[in-house]
């Protein structure tokens, strides 16, 4: 990417119009920190969407709506009763990056090591996408949105405007594990889980588990989820369920594929234990 022109549209329709007209020569820019990873020399026109009022977090019936250009630092500092998004944001990159990098930028183009898609898959988030003044807003679920590289969705000028994260309900807990060599490094493996426990029996009633970084693209782990349903939450079950994970674990940065698999399974079990502990604490 080589920025040849820099546009600051004043409204969402104006930004959409510019991006549609530019086609492949246009590029949405928010924090801009990820451009560092796209170091070819393709000339592009940047369309800065950080001045369109798309920043901020608000509670909205049963969930939280996070504006696409909200910096990770703001998500990290936000506190609300049934909210857990701050946990993963604290562990992404460094203070200076979190002040600039946005939630939208973290998911509009998914890099294999990204933590945010994994958290949003576990939380059953949904995205809101502006598709032009004439078209209805698109609202894909995280499962739909992350089924393929999301960047493809935005080639025609569409703009991610916000992410909706459901509030955690009673007896639901969120847990995540991000394994890194140094605090600011990219994840070697990143895992997130949401468990819902039956208030009477204590058994696992629902589970969403997702992983990334040690695989080519972030994804849910349905085999792990199935192995948990109806069972009593405990360490042995978590390890057993984690061993069912059927993902193309791959080696990188000195890790063999076998090591990645082992690291992922231990991390999945830890994330599940974390989620179960929080679920027990959340009695209402």
């Amino acid at each position: 990417m080589k920025l040849c022109e820099f546009l600051r549209p004043a409204s969402l329709p104006a930004a959409y119009g510019q991006l549609r007209d530019l086609g492949p020569r246009g590029m949405i820019l928010a924090g801009g920190t990820a451009l560092h990873f796209m170091q070819d020399h393709t000339p592009v026109t940047a369309v800065d969407i950080t001045r369109l009022g798309l920043s901020g977090i608000r509670a909205e019936d049963g969930g939280y709506v996070i504006g696409a250009t909200t910096p990770l630092a703001d998500i990290q500092r936000y506190r609300a009763p049934r909210w857990a998004m701050h946990e993963i944001c604290r562990r992404i990159a460094t203070h200076q990056i979190r002040n600039v990098s946005t939630i939208g930028g973290n998911i509009a183009r998914v890099f294999p090591w990204a933590d945010m898609p994994v958290a949003l898959l576990a939380m059953d988030a949904s995205m809101r996408i502006y598709a032009g003044p004439e078209a209805p807003e698109e609202t894909p679920s995280a499962d739909e949105y992350f089924a393929e590289q999301p960047a493809r969705r935005f080639l025609g000028g569409k703009i991610l405007t916000s992410v909706r994260v459901p509030a955690l309900l009673a007896h639901e807990g969120y847990g995540s594990v991000k394994v890194v060599r140094t605090a600011a490094a990219f994840s070697m493996v990143t895992v997130a889980a949401v468990l819902k426990l039956d208030p009477a029996s204590g058994a696992i009633r629902a589970a969403r588990v997702a992983a990334g970084s040690a695989i080519p693209f972030p994804r849910r782990l349905p085999e792990v989820e199935d192995a948990l349903l109806g069972k009593e939450p405990n360490e042995a079950l978590f390890l057993e369920a984690a061993s069912k994970a059927d993902a193309p674990w791959r080696g990188k940065e000195g890790m063999t594929a076998e090591y990645s698999k082992h690291l992922a399974e231990v991390s999945i079990a830890d994330a599940l234990a974390d989620a179960a502990r929080h679920a027990l604490e959340r009695a209402e």
Partner: peptide
């Protein structure tokens, strides 16, 4: 955007000047 030697403050927040486009 790793070492922090280029840290400046923008609107009260520390940022890496090596990652920010001047136009931003």
């Amino acid at each position: 955007g790793t070492c922090g030697a280029c840290t400046v403050i923008m609107d009260g927040r520390a940022i890496y000047a090596c990652l920010l486009y001047s136009m931003q």
